[in-house]
Simulated scan of single mutants.
Amino acid sequence: MLAAILLTMVACNSSDESESTQASPSQDNSQTADSSDVETEINTIETATLSEDITKEENASTKYREGKKEEYQEKLKETKKEMDELQNNPEADSTTALKEVQGNRYEVWDDMLNEIYAILEKQLPAEEMEQLREDQREWLDLREDTAKGASLDYEGGTMEQLEYVTVLANLTEDRCFELVEDYML
């Protein structure tokens, strides 16, 4: 009798399994459909999030670009005012003191030039930046040649080095204003 009960149970289980197997494909289809719907929804969410992130980056980039020109125009005006005061009111009138003043002016303007250039590298499209790099290299050579040429008027004298560094400072100051005005966004 126990054997008959066991056989009945096994038969019932196998029929449940076959029903389960037969029901399974439709369940799989609905699960596949449900799974596909979920994947589509996830992809839609990911795409929307990605689009949002890109928009945020573009807005941040635009925000970075906006206002820099005005900010740097003001910064250049303030720097010029400070450097003009330094130049017009040296602590001493000796050539050595004047060279120090002009050397300080040159250093401040050169630092400002490098700061402006770094901003332009972030703002400008690659092709425009490459062209600016070439122009900047040519300008650096021109600045050096112009300063050397001007200092030769005082060759061998105490004013030679003063004229050289003064021309470097003046040309670098002018270039700062030019880059901000012509290139900065």
Score class of each variant (00 low, 15 high):
residue 110 D to G: 03
residue 120 L to K: 00
residue 101 V to P: 01
residue 111 D to Y: 12
residue 113 L to A: 10
residue 114 N to F: 05
residue 120 L to S: 04
residue 100 E to D: 09
residue 105 R to K: 06
residue 104 N to S: 06
residue 119 I to T: 04
residue 138 E to C: 08
residue 106 Y to A: 00
residue 132 L to V: 07
residue 127 E to F: 12
residue 128 E to P: 03
residue 117 Y to H: 00
residue 132 L to P: 05
residue 138 E to I: 13
residue 131 Q to H: 13
residue 142 L to G: 11
residue 116 I to Q: 00
residue 127 E to S: 14
residue 131 Q to M: 10
residue 109 W to E: 02
residue 143 R to K: 12
residue 107 E to K: 15
residue 108 V to K: 10
residue 144 E to D: 13
residue 125 P to A: 14
residue 143 R to E: 02
residue 99 K to C: 03
residue 109 W to I: 01
residue 139 W to F: 10
residue 134 E to R: 14
residue 139 W to Y: 08
residue 113 L to W: 04
residue 122 K to P: 10
residue 127 E to G: 10
residue 102 Q to W: 05
residue 139 W to R: 06
residue 102 Q to A: 04
residue 121 E to F: 09
residue 139 W to H: 10
residue 123 Q to I: 07
residue 114 N to P: 03
residue 121 E to W: 12
residue 137 R to C: 06
residue 142 L to C: 08
residue 141 D to H: 12
residue 100 E to V: 04
residue 103 G to Y: 03
residue 140 L to I: 09
residue 130 E to W: 11
residue 105 R to I: 01
residue 126 A to L: 13
residue 110 D to M: 07
residue 143 R to A: 07
residue 140 L to R: 04
residue 113 L to Y: 08
residue 115 E to P: 05
residue 130 E to T: 15
residue 144 E to A: 08
residue 124 L to K: 09
residue 126 A to Y: 13
residue 131 Q to G: 09
residue 134 E to M: 14
residue 141 D to Y: 11
residue 122 K to S: 15
residue 131 Q to A: 14
residue 131 Q to E: 13
residue 118 A to N: 05
residue 136 Q to M: 08
